[in-house]
Write a protein that binds this DNA or RNA. Structure first.
Lengths: 212, 212
DNA sequence: GTGGACTGAATGACGGTTCACTCGTGGACT
DNA sequence: AGTCCACGAGTGAACCGTCATTCAGTCCAC
């Protein structure tokens, strides 16, 4: 309504790509707030400043909106993670970065984190089909780091990298859930977050380090 | 239809309590299979061998069925956990038992585990109101064990018991999720499960043990 | 003036909930 | 003992509100 249109230079034609993005952002916000099933398509539309029908120009249906959020965002996250891991020298540093990144996401993009944490589990059909493969990639990335550490002799070899990776992810997810559910509105205090991240990373690393 | 009625001795009058239980069990089964939102009330009814309307004699509405599952079952789980913890002598043994119990639940009552793991996150309204308090109790129980360990000097003191407890729960939940989602039908292989439990418990304990 | 992005009211399906009815039971009365 | 009746648990077809989705029309940009 009181919305300015195309805003800058060229005008509106190429606004298409922009609309899609606006809808995605709005959907993340609303899904985070109310959950997938309790969210009305019309709410997403309103939040995006778009007509109900417009959503169907960019997405097949409501499910597809959730799917696209995963495809788009988790893809990017994986990219960032890969780059960050490549940059660090030691296994320990890499794992600490993973922890920081996953919990940091909560600070930066709280809504996205909540959508991932909470909605990852909602529709099993959806989940298994789209989210699970990406999720698996994420886990394999972590498992890879751990396996490398084992080969280097830095990490103990009597724990399966996969199990360790899953535990790591689960623990971080569990910590995230606390804040996602705890404070309805406010961002979790970054200091608390950082403290938790550090403590947990230490705990995990000490458990995983090769005994001397 | 082809259902035998009151079956044994007395007849049917006190069958009421029985019906409620039948509905709960059926609901756990169906919720586990399809998730809360995708489940039709009529499906629960069919699975329980009961008319649609009967469900409303025992539960306020569909939401209430889920709520009652939590109240009923998690209550019992807490009870068991408390008893088990009391019986063990050392902190290490207690933590190992917690791990075994939570992963063991997956083996024994796969559907319930799935409902808890997956549906715990579905309706945030529902979740915050009913499940969260019970969940908090569970976490506090674990945190208590860890705090005791710290007081005894067995566990390191530089990690908050709460954070450790959350991590522990999250990791176990993450491991459970693997199997809950992985094999659609079959129970996870008990041996795999046990291996994972042991490995993780060792990992966690070694991380948490007081350094010498 | 035309094409196409966009709109939003109308549509239809779906499914939770209701409620008028059925029927077995156990107590009261003969 | 045999009959009868009131009760209420149980039933399930119908109801009705709630959306996801559609599509006939509007409005720019060129």
């Amino acid at each position: 309504m009181a919305e300015k249109k195309g805003s800058s230079a060229k005008g509106g034609k190429r606004a298409g790509g922009d609309k899609r993005e606006r809808i995605l952002q709005a959907a993340i916000r609303v899904f985070a707030k109310n959950g997938f099933y309790a969210t009305r398509v019309s709410e997403i539309a309103k939040a995006a400043g778009v007509a109900d029908g417009t959503i169907y120009l960019y997405f097949e249906n409501k499910d597809d909106v959730l799917v696209q959020i995963f495809e788009d965002r988790i893809g990017k996250l994986l990219e960032i993670l890969r780059r960050v891991i490549a940059k660090e020298e030691t296994v320990e540093a890499r794992i600490r970065r993973i922890v920081e990144l996953q919990l940091g996401l909560l600070e930066e993009e709280r809504d996205l984190a909540e959508v991932i944490t909470v909605n990852l589990r909602q529709s099993s059909r959806l989940l298994k089909q789209y989210a699970a493969p990406l999720f698996t990639k994420y886990l394999e990335l972590i498992a890879g780091v751990i396996a490398d550490g084992q080969k280097e002799g830095v990490l103990r070899r009597d724990v399966s990298p996969r199990i360790a990776a899953r535990s790591l992810w689960g623990a971080l997810d569990g910590l995230a859930l606390t804040w996602a559910l705890g404070t309805p509105e406010r961002k979790p205090d970054p200091a608390t977050l950082r403290k938790a991240a550090t403590q947990f990373a230490t705990l995990f690393l000490d458990g995983l380090r090769a005994r001397d």
